[in-house]
């Protein structure tokens, strides 16, 4: 079922998760990286404004959301590990925990967004908040798509029709959400 010995990860064309996903990941982190560098360049024009705006963001929310995503990534890695051992029930269980991490992230993000809108810090408030809403908003879309993929993975695990390539690709996409957040969190919440 899992064909573990047939995939040579050391081959440049077969990274864990598949080459197409890895091309996507490189493009995604490159795009978010460039956007964050542009944010830094803009912040040099009015450092005080960006510093005050950054301080409006709740670091505790950002750090808690980081822990939610990292823990979710841990459960995803555990799920794939169990899947490789053909332990489908445990793999499905860890996948549900991974999805729970994503849902907790979205819940706290939703609360943070609600708070910012209530206080009037919307997209057009200043350029910092334009970056904040666009960058975190695109990331939230990635998490939503990831949860959608997780639901398909869970379905195929429950039906015992899961294919190794699909499971690893889904997991790699989910981890990509972690990677993007690990770039956004310090740049938006911590260093300006």
């Amino acid at each position: 079922m899992t064909e573990e010995k047939t995939i040579d990860y050391k081959n440049i064309y077969y990274p864990p998760g598949g080459i197409l996903l890895w091309i996507l990941i490189l493009l995604e982190i490159l795009t978010f990286g460039i956007a964050l560098i542009v944010l830094m360049v803009f912040s040099r024009e009015d450092p005080e404004l960006y510093h005050r705006s950054r301080e409006i963001l709740n670091v505790n929310f950002g750090a808690t959301n980081t822990v939610f995503l990292l823990t979710s990534g841990f459960f995803m890695a555990s799920s794939i590990h169990r899947f490789h051992r053909n332990d489908f029930p445990k793999a499905a269980f860890f996948l549900r925990l991974a999805a729970l991490g994503g849902l907790l992230f979205l819940t706290l993000k939703g609360f943070e967004y609600y708070e910012k809108i209530e206080e009037g810090y919307t997209l057009g408030y200043n350029t910092f908040f334009t970056f904040y809403w666009l960058l975190t908003g695109f990331h939230v879309i990635h998490v939503l798509v990831g949860l959608f993929i997780l639901s398909f993975m869970h379905r195929s695990l429950s039906k015992r029709t899961a294919i190794r390539e699909d499971m690893e690709a889904g997991a790699t996409f989910w981890h990509m959400c972690d990677l993007i957040w690990l770039l956004l969190f310090p740049a938006l919440y911590l260093i300006l």
């Binding site: 990860y9 050391k10 081959n11 440049i12 990274p15 864990p16 998760g17 990292l70 990534g73 841990f74 995803m76 890695a77 997991a171 790699t172 981890h175 972690d178 990677l179 690990l182 770039l183």
Partner: peptide, 16 residues
Amino acid sequence: KFLLVSFNFMEVKKAH
């Protein structure tokens, strides 16, 4: 943190 996630959770350590 970025390296820990990519190398350990995403298993890039096994890749080319």
